[in-house]
Design a protein around this nucleic acid. Structure first.
Lengths: 144, 144
DNA sequence: GTAAATTTGATTGAGTGCAATTTAATTTTG
DNA sequence: CAAAATTAAATTGCACTCAATCAAATTTAC
């Protein structure tokens, strides 16, 4: 019954549900993020910036697993919106520091309800959520 | 200790490891897919086409959770490579049927080692892989 | 101290994703 | 049957994502 191409069936791939679920979750964020006028990428960038207040582009890239080709236009957009400022480090001009503005901090108050509203949308038991998170971090940990 | 912004910390998001892991897996496919000159999206499209031999764009979209805006350019590229043909359905001209060519079927022989080589790259126990797959499908199932 | 190597971002180009609009074909309705 | 509604793809426009390349600043190694 099993033929040698079974491994190429879509349902036998681990990668595919991962990829599809990732896009599905981003889709569910969209209506919530529209309210605060952020794209998903801008949102996770702001999460890191809110945490650190000031952080270099390089360190942001390391936390988000994104390279400068992706981050540069996102950060320029966030600067345009007045949520952050981009300034070269005075000690080492190669480094670009990102700092959140007052307006950026004010947005955090509006963003704070996004995670709880998302939690309602994801119908996993707490055990499943923990298990999922653990396995994904294991996948990521032996990345790079 | 807990402040009301803890929910906005990157490490407390479920969405982020999902999104990062998805991109990480696609990155690991790249060197393998480069050998058969397919991008990741082209690869999962071919998985569906190999399974069905002939399938409409609409049905492909349903299986892959992708819309025509994404699929149309991917399928045109696959046609350019000679792996598939795109032909309107004779019964209902609104429908575009995708059919794999001999060259497309020949590529399957080269693709068959991709899944096993990927499995080696993903360091999960069988139990973890099953658990991950189950949870992801649950996430996807109450999508739409 | 200066040439070479490294580090940090920016830029460019190809390939997605997806919402919104358009076009063409078919089905439904009065 | 003809107008209206629906359906299937294609197109368009915006926003990533990433590889590859480039440019500027800094470190290092002689």
């Amino acid at each position: 019954m099993a033929d040698r191409f079974d491994c190429l069936r879509l349902e036998n791939q681990l990668c595919f549900p991962l990829y599809a679920a990732s896009r599905e979750i981003i889709r569910r964020y969209k209506p919530l993020l529209d309210e605060i006028e952020l794209t998903y990428t801008q949102y996770i960038a702001m999460l890191v910036i809110w945490e650190h207040r000031t952080i270099s582009v390089k360190d942001m890239g390391a936390r988000l697993y994104l390279d400068s080709g992706t981050l540069t236009p996102v950060l320029k957009k966030l600067e345009q919106k007045g949520l952050i400022v981009r300034r070269r480090d005075s000690g080492d001009e190669r480094i670009l520091n990102i700092t959140v503005t007052d307006k950026g901090m004010a947005l955090r108050d509006k963003a704070v309800n996004v995670p709880e509203r998302m939690a309602c949308s994801v119908k996993l038991t707490p055990e499943e959520a923990v298990s999922l998170c653990t396995i994904l971090h294991k996948l990521l940990s032996d990345a790079e």
